[in-house]
Design a protein around this nucleic acid. Structure first.
Length: 238
DNA sequence: AAAATGTCCAACCGCAAGTCA
DNA sequence: ATGACTTGCGGTTGGACATTT
């Protein structure tokens, strides 16, 4: 009993999107306020010879208003490194804790192509601190956990999966990890192609010394994105 | 100048979870 | 309760472009 394909592969176009296809997709979604009728029906309604999944991906990762394609800031580097150390490759979760506009795909690409190498380089220098499990039974942070950019409290819980189950962590812990590493960093500070050991050291050291009650992360990107905007009027670096 | 190699990122694939009849 | 269908996610690939030899 096989799995039915999501679309007729022979009938759909694949590969890079043309400007015309982008325009059709954008126009349809703007007209209908979203993928009215679902993504699977969208290609037919919008006159696109594409798979619905492909349309969704194109919209979310590229065409959606607010998507940022520029370089990642040093602060974003810190957040990604710290969260990856804590929760593993849960890219949508990590992206949700970044300022709005970063997609999970972009974060994943950025990690795989750049940050991973930086971390490996760092690991070569700090072999005892990298790759170890997080001690989640350590004492909880005694201050309100805040996201690094806006002061937004990080709350919520849910379920993990895969290897992350071995290392379930809470938002308290993540916030405590991020605060010292990021807030102390000026928004316009320069960032070398390779992070200084001291910067990452802060992250790893804080991982080993703080922790929260056993919990997990479940803030949706929508929820977080909304909150990012709500908090964006104060001390943000967005 | 050309070939080889490396980097980056959009896009595809398959699986799992969620939804609904 | 169940199975079909849809959506979301993470891993991987392929190709364009940049850099090095």
């Amino acid at each position: 009993m096989g799995r039915s394909p999501c679309c007729d592969k022979a009938a759909v176009k694949r590969g890079p999107w043309s400007e015309e296809e982008d325009a059709r997709l954008r126009s349809y979604i703007e007209q209908h306020g979203g993928a009215a009728g679902g993504w699977m029906a969208l290609p037919r309604k919008a006159g696109l010879r594409r798979c619905g999944k492909s349309c969704r991906l194109r919209w979310l990762n590229y065409l959606r208003p607010g998507v940022r394609h520029g370089a990642f800031s040093p602060e974003e580097d810190h957040v990604i490194c710290a969260l990856h150390a804590a929760v593993g490759s849960r890219w949508s979760l990590i992206a949700a804790h970044l300022p709005p506009g970063r997609t999970d795909n972009a974060v994943k690409n950025y990690w795989n192509t750049r940050l991973k190498k930086k971390m490996l380089l760092f690991a070569g220098r700090q072999p005892h601190d990298v790759g170890r499990n997080v001690n989640v039974s350590a004492a909880p942070a005694d201050e309100t956990p805040l996201a690094p950019w806006t002061g937004l409290p990080l709350t919520g819980c849910g379920s993990g999966g895969g290897a992350v189950d071995q290392m379930r962590v809470g938002d308290d812990m993540i916030a405590s990890m991020l605060k010292p590493a990021v807030v102390s960093q000026p928004a316009d500070s320069s960032f070398s192609s390779e992070p200084a050991a001291t910067e990452l050291d802060v992250i790893f050291r804080s991982m080993g010394t703080t922790g929260g009650e056993h919990s997990d992360l479940s803030l949706s990107s929508t929820e977080i994105e909304t909150d990012w905007y709500h908090h964006a009027d104060s001390d943000t670096v967005i």
